[in-house]
Design a protein around this nucleic acid. Structure first.
Lengths: 190, 190
DNA sequence: TAAATAAATCTAGCGTTGCTATATTGTCAA
DNA sequence: TTGACAATATAGCAACGCTAGATTTATTTA
């Protein structure tokens, strides 16, 4: 019965094309321009087909977000320079996080701002997001007792820096200064 | 010529009713449910009347946001306890900021997340927002050299804490711990 | 006071959206 | 070849932001 396998493969492939098209359009013209009609046109199927893959539009955003979670963790881990000190490692991760956010703003938006239908209530948090959290915790840990709380705060600062800058609330030119300042605060001995 | 004054007064009053209705509906059912039709119904006029007051829907969000900016600054200033130390003052402002964000989530969203049509390119930043920034800078200043950069980072942390918690990315139960941790980092002598 | 003018407001409608009921086509088994 | 079922398309609903044009109300002029 290789037939149903072939069909499943074809369906998975089409699903990937939908996700890819959504991500591409979002990055090109913003999420507002990612409509179900436009996606249908992009993959050369009629609209209702999309609803055989995703429950609604939000679920498509969610699928893109999930893809992003799968990329962010590795990016952060890879960002730490060889032989970096603890403080340098923290700075590397911080800068890598912000670069990720600014280079793929639509992807970042899907992951952390838009309603994506993704649930994060403890147990069903995607493994890839746990992994991202772990990457941050690894560099924060050396500097504090309660690593989880400290990582949440660390992450919050990065997210705030990304969002406020994206909305033009803080000055783009001082991005590096803010990171340096913030890492200094965390890494100095008390 | 009291006629035109009377008309202006009536128009301003109606404008305020639109803003009030938008804010109320947003807080009750979320911004997605704040439609121009619904607002028109609320103020008992037809839709096109709203466009005599605001260029488009975003401008209505912007007007609500502006109202929020007018409230946040004073709230922050009033939050500092009498005789508080520098570190305590910073903590008071941080907690007040988060309480503001969580008690009026829709207002906060209008101010910092939604497209509001408000421009922040340096010179035309609303005075009330500058004022809010000033309130934060006042408590951050004692702890750093470059107060502006430090305040941007301080603000970013608060914004990140508010947003990540609102989206269920970090644990509600540890809000106080995160603030304590973060204030500790900033206030300890190096 | 009545007609003319200007301002305020409404009706009706366009194009678009997310989503779905229903018709149609294509595929496989008997 | 035909009957059944899955895959896909057509067509449409209700709601959205927004606007042109008609209509009513208010003000000024004769």
């Amino acid at each position: 019965m290789g037939i149903s396998e072939r069909k499943e493969r074809a369906k998975a492939e089409r699903e990937q094309r939908i996700i890819g098209a959504a991500r591409m359009l979002a990055e090109k013209d913003g999420w507002a321009s990612v409509t179900v009609r436009r996606l249908a046109q992009e993959i050369e199927y009629s609209q209702p087909v999309l609803y055989a893959h995703f429950q609604n539009r939000d679920a498509i955003v969610g699928a893109v977000a999930l893809e992003g979670f799968g990329e962010l963790g590795p990016v952060l881990r890879a960002s730490v320079r060889r032989g970096a000190s603890s403080a340098e490692a923290m700075e590397d991760v911080a800068m890598a996080y912000l670069e990720f956010a600014f280079e793929r703003p639509a992807l970042y938006e899907a992951m952390f701002v838009l309603p994506s239908g993704l649930r994060f209530a403890k147990s069903d948090t995607p493994q890839s997001l746990r992994d991202t959290f772990g990457a941050m915790m690894a560099v924060v840990e050396p500097f504090c007792e309660n690593a989880e709380v400290a990582t949440e705060a660390f992450w919050a600062t990065l997210h705030g820096l990304a969002e406020l800058e994206r909305h033009g609330r803080i000055r783009e030119a001082f991005r590096k200064d803010r990171v340096t300042h913030f890492i200094d605060m965390l890494s100095r001995r008390s």
